[in-house]
């Protein structure tokens, strides 16, 4: 390594150092006069992307009926066991949840329930700020969760595809073949 040989070398070093310091002071000074980038939260709420994972809802199909068939898949997928329900059969022959409960105090908003849901009934919404004074208030029942729209897939109707003869007769479902007369295919 080269040693400092003469006084001009030392002087240059001092000047370089001073210039470096002045540069950083100048940089912060220019930032002082820029507009802050902070978003003032309660006054300004940033529009969240549609797929943000926030509060969970239970949606309805286009005909206004509940989509949820109480299959327990969301409950099974939930890593923190915050979803519980009891299934029953409704008067129209469709399965549904007798009661459906999500404990939002325990929910980690991972979205695994939404991915598990076969009927697109359970969906996460961008709403994330719902504070409560008491922890018991975070236990949402079915009537708190149910909404009157289809969420992210408003046109999807599970029973139109299901192949279950509840609501629609055999052969009437989308993409379903004509019912086969089993006696006609005997050898």
């Amino acid at each position: 390594m080269e040693e400092k040989k003469d006084k001009t070398g030392l002087l240059r070093e001092v000047l370089d150092g001073a210039a470096g310091l002045a540069g950083s002071y100048a940089a912060t000074l220019t930032h002082l006069f820029r507009r802050p980038v902070t978003e003032q939260y309660p006054e300004y709420k940033r529009p969240m992307p549609a797929r943000t994972r926030g509060r969970i809802i239970l949606t309805r199909s286009p005909d206004g009926k509940e989509r949820c068939v109480a299959c327990y898949l969301c409950s099974g997928a939930c890593p923190v066991n915050c979803i519980s329900m009891q299934s029953e059969e409704g008067p129209d022959g469709r399965r549904r949840a007798a009661w459906f409960r999500i404990n939002f105090a325990r929910c980690i908003y991972c979205g695994l329930c939404e991915e598990a849901c076969p009927t697109l009934a359970l969906q996460l919404t961008p709403e994330f700020a719902f504070c409560k004074d008491a922890i018991e208030d975070f236990v949402y029942e079915k009537e708190d969760l149910l909404v009157d729209h289809g969420g992210k897939d408003p046109d999807y109707d599970f029973y139109a595809h299901a192949g279950v003869a509840a609501g629609r007769p055999k052969g009437e479902h989308i993409g379903e073949d004509e019912p086969v007369d089993v006696k006609s295919i005997l050898p």
């Binding site: 912060t28 930032h31 002082l32 820029r34 507009r35 802050p36 980038v37 902070t38 003032q40």
Partner: peptide, 10 residues
């Protein structure tokens, strides 16, 4: 406050 403004925030 000043430190905030130096860092482009309130």
């Amino acid at each position: 406050k000043l430190l905030g403004r130096f860092q482009v925030r309130y």
